[in-house]
Design a binder for these strands. Structure first.
Lengths: 350, 350
DNA sequence: TGCTTGGATGGAACCGCTTCCGGAGGAGGA
DNA sequence: TCCTCCTCCGGAAGCGGTTCCATCCAAGCA
């Protein structure tokens, strides 16, 4: 492979001049620039990214840390992130955290300086040590789906979302409303589920409905777990008439469990999810919608701002809203069983 | 930030010794190693990835090129790719190609040496120039969903898949079967749609059914286009009784168009997709399933092999199979309209 | 005791770029 | 004509690692 020195030799100029041409410096005479450009083309020269990174201290890479594979909502956020990153001239490095132990690996590898100019962290918490280290290295961080004092972030009001979902069910006449979410001591440190549960409990209290601890179930995030937890709820002596799941992924597990237990939805069980991922529309799931793709796009914008001019830390709250589809109904009209999905499809198609 | 020189000074050793400790060389006395390690810990030292890359010529990064945002199938492939990459100790750099003009940008940036140790290309074609350049730079390439002589790749037999889908429809008694796919001169260079169409035509010919050019429609990939094309098909004097879409994304567009035109599926129209993305299961779509996640995982394995020991180019074919769900029915039993999705869900839940 | 041998170590050279400094040369003014 | 100033350019230094080579020292052997 050719180097800048070879290009310089061939063009009959110094390496500094070639570098200036490469970086569009204006201190190069047009004639010289043409000669250099000709040499570059002739040699098929491409500058080494590593050498440039070492020399400038900038890598033109942004690290995006998140559990991509297991969470559909994260992928939708990523859809908003990817275009922004490449439009900003940066590379997008995906740091997938699927297993808890990976989290530490990833955070360690992130701490390696000279790897990323900026960091986008989705849903995961950041230890003070990592934050301090990044700050010392001058690497800006933007958080998505999480608030942390002193750090720029994009989030929604999860508690309000939880209230929204619960009030909807209360309004339909439900009293025995279950909550199904992530374990709150989960090894990843996810906490949106806990905030949504707080909203759920607040709404119940506001309505004068007592929170029944038997109806609050949690476990590792995932559809399988949700299915198992739902089976438990349905087997209760006094099963719930409605379930609020802390995410659509989990709500889909609830639907699956209800289906295999032959419990009609929404005839005998109403289900509300959270996130409004694409499948939710196809499954006809009533859910609390949050702007996933927008959150990713906004986060990149904030990160690029920080990269460009050291914008001060700021926190942006995005709105969320209830989307009523076909998995919720009043206690008094159980007539919809079996038609869920037919209605869904029409609802989902705009 | 501290450098290797500072660590060496603090430990009272030379930089070479620190480097040896960092790289687990065995030519360091245990006592020395401990002293160096203590200095590293005390200083919170992390080696610079850029410097290491420049010095060794390896970046420990793999570039993955694909249109992620618009194609659900690509995201599922990515699910297979991500774990393999990080298990191999590499970083995953996502190079998203959404707009045709991005393709050239990305390929140019990929040509920058010292950025990636290996390349995974999904669905997109590679120009001879890029291939030659990568070969010269010693950067192995693995293709997914595409065959190219002399390059390692993972693919399926798209033509056989197309025959599978078409025979299924023929077997149900359909004669007027439409094909809806990507434009064959599309600016990205996707070609799986064309191969699937070839299988469709072959199956029709084998069955003695003439290929009606009016029933073969193509356009830019995407659900919106598919919807528009379907409207055209349904408005034909003699509309098709079945549509084979070259991807699930497109098949979902077909379903949406049928729904808004009040054409019952599968009552008056049968629909077959291709890929078996997750939503297909929820939509109850009959489709040709291909192992998307597996294809990604296998591709990474092949790439890691090539990275490790220069494995020879090889081509791997994965199986695909027809999955019959609720969007196809015989011409003689039109009784399913309106129940599609109820059946679907049960079918989709295992 | 003196020499050989080999393991541990220090440090220079090198990877390929950017940047800065100093110098060359031309234009313009006195 | 000479000096000044400005533009353009050459090339050395430096970024922070790895690697190789020379050196040192201690153990082993005669």
């Amino acid at each position: 492979m050719s180097t800048i020195a070879r290009v310089a030799a061939r063009a009959g100029v110094g390496v500094g001049t070639v570098s200036r041409v490469l970086n569009d410096s204006d201190a190069v005479r047009p004639a010289t620039r043409r000669r250099v450009q000709a040499a570059i083309d002739a040699l098929g020269y491409e500058p080494s990214a590593a050498a440039r990174a070492l020399s400038t201290g900038r890598t033109m890479a942004i690290g995006v840390i998140a559990p991509f594979v297991t969470r559909a909502s994260v992928v939708e956020r990523l859809r908003g992130v990817a275009p922004g990153v490449s439009d900003g001239g940066y590379q997008l490095v995906l740091l997938d955290v699927e297993r808890p132990e990976q989290r530490d690996d990833v955070l360690r590898s992130v701490a390696v300086k000279g790897r990323f100019d900026g960091l986008l962290v989705i849903s995961l918490p950041l230890s003070e040590r990592v934050v301090a280290r990044m700050r010392a290295a001058g690497v800006p961080i933007v958080l998505v789906d999480r608030r942390q004092p002193g750090l720029t972030g994009v989030h929604i009001d999860d508690e309000a979302g939880g209230r929204l979902a619960t009030r909807h069910l209360l309004g339909l006449g439900h009293k025995r409303i279950a909550f199904l979410g992530d374990g709150e001591e989960n090894p990843y440190g996810f906490d949106s589920s806990a905030r949504r549960r707080a909203g759920y409990e607040a709404a119940l209290r506001d309505a004068g409905v007592e929170v029944d601890p038997d109806l609050v179930v949690t476990g590792p995030h995932g559809r399988d777990t949700a299915r198992a937890l739902t089976r438990g709820l349905l087997a209760l002596p006094a099963p719930p008439t409605a379930i609020f799941a802390a995410s659509d992924d989990q709500a889909l597990g609830v639907l699956e469990a209800a289906s295999s237990a032959a419990v009609p939805v929404p005839g005998r069980l109403s289900v509300v999810g959270f996130d409004d991922i694409e499948i939710a529309r196809h499954a006809g799931l009533t859910t609390v919608a949050q702007p996933l793709e927008t959150s990713g796009a906004l986060a990149v914008d904030l990160l690029l701002d920080a990269l460009a001019g050291g914008a001060p830390p700021q926190s942006r709250e995005l709105p969320c809203e209830l989307v009523v589809r076909a998995t919720t109904a009043g206690l008094d009209r159980p007539g919809f069983s079996g038609m869920i999905h037919a209605r869904t499809t029409r609802g989902g198609v705009s």
